[in-house]
Design a protein around this nucleic acid. Structure first.
Lengths: 341, 341
DNA sequence: AACAGAAATGCAATCGATTGCATTGATTAA
DNA sequence: TTAATCAATGCAATCGATTGCATTTCTGTT
C-alpha cells in the first residue's frame, strides 16, 4: 500500500482556488483573513489530512518552538521531577521539549549540546555533569544569543539565569539537626568540589559545625562521585579513621544508603551508633530501614521556574538586563536514620 | 554585543570562490569532490564556525535523523533503562533521540504523537499508556509508512515490530516459586487487561496455579492501575475476603511494596504469613525490608533491540515483509519477601 | 596536437511555509 | 458619480541545504 501523500498548503490552495498565502494565514488565525474563508480552509485542511511541515516553517521563521534539556541522568527522581516541571510549563505554551542525558560524561554532554544547537533549539535548560569543567560547548549558545538557563548544577561564570536550591542552608540545617540530636563528631561524604552544589553543601556543613563550637576532623571529609560504590568506599574509609564519628552528613541519598547498608552489615547501629542524613529525598529514602533523613528539593517547581524564565527570554528580542539567580527553599525531612530514640 | 552571524554554505562558497554545491558535497565527503578542495573547504568551515542548518537539510531530504520515543513515565527504572538502550544504539548510528512521557494519559500520548509526527521524526518507539485503547494517533505513522516499533506495552493489532518480555513465563515462574514455597492460596494484584502485558501476567499466574492443581479464588484477583494507592486499596480488599491468601503475586513492584507496608502495619508477617512476589525489579525492591522477590526484565537490551529494528527499517525503502515479535527472557530474583525461612 | 573520456565543479530547481508589498474588490464619503 | 478608504487576497522572494543535469577542466591516448 502506497503511503498517503503529504498534503501541503499548496494542495489546499489549489483545491479551493485560492493562494497559498491565504491558506497559511487562515491556518494561523491571522485576522486579515475573513471569517468565511478561514472556516472553509480549516475544514478542507482537516478533510485532506493536512499536517504542517514544521521544518519548513522553522526554516523560514528561524524558530523551532523546541526547548532542549540536558540532565546528567533522567533516572533520578530529582531530575525527572524537574523535567516534569519543565514539560508542564513548556507544553502549555506550545513548546516541545527534547530531553537528553549526559550520563555525567563531558563528551556526551558536548555532543548533545552540539546536536541541540544544530537542531536550532530555541533555548536550553541544563544541569551540568560531574566531569564538566570546560564550557566551550556552552559558548555556542551564548555566542548566538540562544537563551540558556541553568538549574541545580550551575556554572557560576556563565551569564545566564540560574535556578538553584539553598544547598548551603539545607546542608546547614541537616548538620545542625545532627548536632541537636547530641552528635559531636559529624563526618561528611561530599561530591566533587568543582560542582558548586557540593561546595556549598560542604560549606553549610562546616558552618554548622563551627557555629556549634565543634571540631572538624578533616580526615572525615571525603569527596567522590557519590555513587553506590563511592559511598561504600567512603564509609569504609571513615570507619578506619582514629576517632570514629557519631554522625555522617552525606551529600546525597545514594551514599547515605551505602553507608547505612554497610553499617548494618558491620553490626553498627543506625542511628544509635552513627546517625545519618542524606540529601535529595530520593524515593527510596523513606523505604529503607532505617528510613533516611534527608533534604527535600522542590524539583518540579524548579523545572517550572526554569521553563518560565527561559520562555520569557526566548520571547524577548533583547538580552535581559540582568540575570537572576533564583534560590528555592529546601526542607529537612527527619526520618529514622538520624532520630534520637 | 551582537550575536555571531549564522554561517551558511554560501558564505563558505563565496569566501573560497566556489559554488555552494561543491561546499555541500565536500562537507558530506562526497567522492566527486577532489581531495584538495575538500580539505580546503573543511578547514574554512571550521575556521568560520560553520554549523549546518539541520532544518534546511531536513526539509530538502525529508529526513530528520531523529527518533521519537514515548514512554508512560521516564522516572521508572525499567523505562529509563530502555531509553538508555535506545540512546546507546541511536547515537552510534547518528540519530538523535527525542524522549517524551505520556504520564499514562491518552490525551498527552496523542498530543505527543501528533507533535512528533509534525516534527517528522524518522521513526517512533513507544510503549503505550494505561488508558490507551484507541489508536488513531498511531495510524498517522502507519499511513505515512513511518516505521514504528513497540516495546513492552504493545498493541497487538497494529502491524509493527514488537519487543516484549516473556510476561507469561515470568508470571508463571513467579507464581510457581510461591507454590514451591508451600503456598496454596495465591492472590493476584493485576493491571488493566487492555494492556497485553498484564493480561499475559495474569494468564501465566492462572496457568501456574492450575498446573499445580490448586484453586483460584476469583475474589482475590484484582485489577487496577498499579499505583501505590491502588496497591493499598487492593491489599485492604484482599484482606477482607473470606479465606485469607498465604501469598500474593503482584503485577508490579509498586503494588508489592504497598502490600508489604500495609501488612507490616497490620502486624501480618511477610513472608511468614503472606509471601509476596512483584514484577520489574525496581531499584527499591532490593532495598526495602523485607526485600522484594521480583521478575527482572532486560530493559537496556530491549531498548537496543528496538532501536536496531527501527533504524534498519528506516534505512530500507520498502516495508518489511514480515513483522517480528521479539520476546526477551525474564529472570526470577528471589529475595526475602517470598523465601521460606 | 587533438580528442575521447573521466573527473571536478557549477547551475538552478526544489523542499513547504512565511511575509512584505502589491493588487483587487467593496464600501463609504463627498 | 468619483475618489478615497479599508478589507481581503495574491505575488514572489526567502529561509539553507541538496541534487539531477550541464558544463568545465583534466588526463591520457593516438
Amino acid at each position: 500500500m502506497a503511503p498517503k501523500p503529504e498534503i501541503t498548503i499548496h494542495d489546499i490552495a489549489k483545491k479551493l482556488n485560492i493562494s497559498a498565502s491565504t491558506v497559511s494565514r487562515a491556518l494561523k488565525d491571522n485576522p486579515l483573513i475573513s471569517e468565511a474563508t478561514r472556516k472553509k480552509i480549516k475544514k478542507a485542511a482537516i478533510e485532506m489530512g493536512y499536517r504542517p511541515n514544521v521544518m519548513a516553517a522553522n526554516l523560514r521563521t528561524r524558530r523551532t518552538n523546541t526547548i532542549g534539556v540536558i540532565v546528567p541522568l533522567i533516572n533520578r527522581h530529582f531530575f525527572s521531577s524537574v523535567i516534569s516541571g519543565i514539560e508542564d510549563v513548556a507544553y502549555k505554551q506550545g513548546f516541545a521539549v527534547t530531553i537528553s542525558q549526559s550520563n555525567d560524561k563531558l563528551e556526551k554532554e558536548s555532543t548533545i549540546a552540539h546536536s541541540l544547537f544544530s537542531n536550532r533549539v530555541d533555548g536550553l535548560i541544563l544541569s551540568i555533569g560531574m566531569e564538566t569543567q570546560s564550557y566551550d560547548h556552552l559558548k555556542l549558545f551564548s555566542e548566538r544569543n540562544i537563551p540558556l538557563v541553568f538549574f541545580d548544577r550551575i556554572v557560576e561564570e556563565i551569564p545566564a539565569h540560574k535556578i538553584v536550591v539553598d544547598d548551603f542552608g539545607g546542608a546547614y540545617r541537616a548538620t545542625q539537626h545532627l548536632i541537636e540530636q547530641g552528635r559531636k563528631k559529624v563526618a561528611h561524604i561530599g561530591g566533587p568540589l568543582n560542582l558548586q552544589i557540593y561546595a556549598k553543601r560542604e560549606a553549610g556543613y562546616r558552618k554548622a559545625i563551627s557555629d556549634a563550637g565543634l571540631q572538624i576532623n578533616e580526615n572525615q571529609i571525603l569527596h567522590n562521585s557519590l555513587t553506590r560504590q563511592d559511598g561504600l568506599n567512603a564509609i569504609k574509609s571513615i570507619l578506619k579513621t582514629k576517632e570514629r564519628p557519631d554522625a555522617i552528613f552525606c551529600a546525597n541519598d545514594t551514599t547515605a544508603l551505602s553507608a547505612i547498608i554497610h553499617l548494618k552489615e558491620r553490626g553498627i547501629k543506625v542511628p544509635e551508633d552513627i546517625a545519618i542524613v542524606g540529601f535529595s529525598n530520593e524515593p527510596f529514602s523513606e523505604l529503607v530501614t532505617p528510613s533516611i533523613s534527608t533534604i527535600k528539593q522542590p524539583g518540579f517547581e524548579m523545572g517550572q521556574k526554569a521553563a518560565e524564565l527561559l520562555i520569557k527570554q526566548i520571547g524577548s528580542k533583547t538580552k535581559p538586563k540582568a540575570y537572576e539567580t533564583i534560590m528555592m527553599e529546601t526542607e529537612l525531612i527527619v526520618r529514622n536514620s538520624s532520630q534520637r530514640k
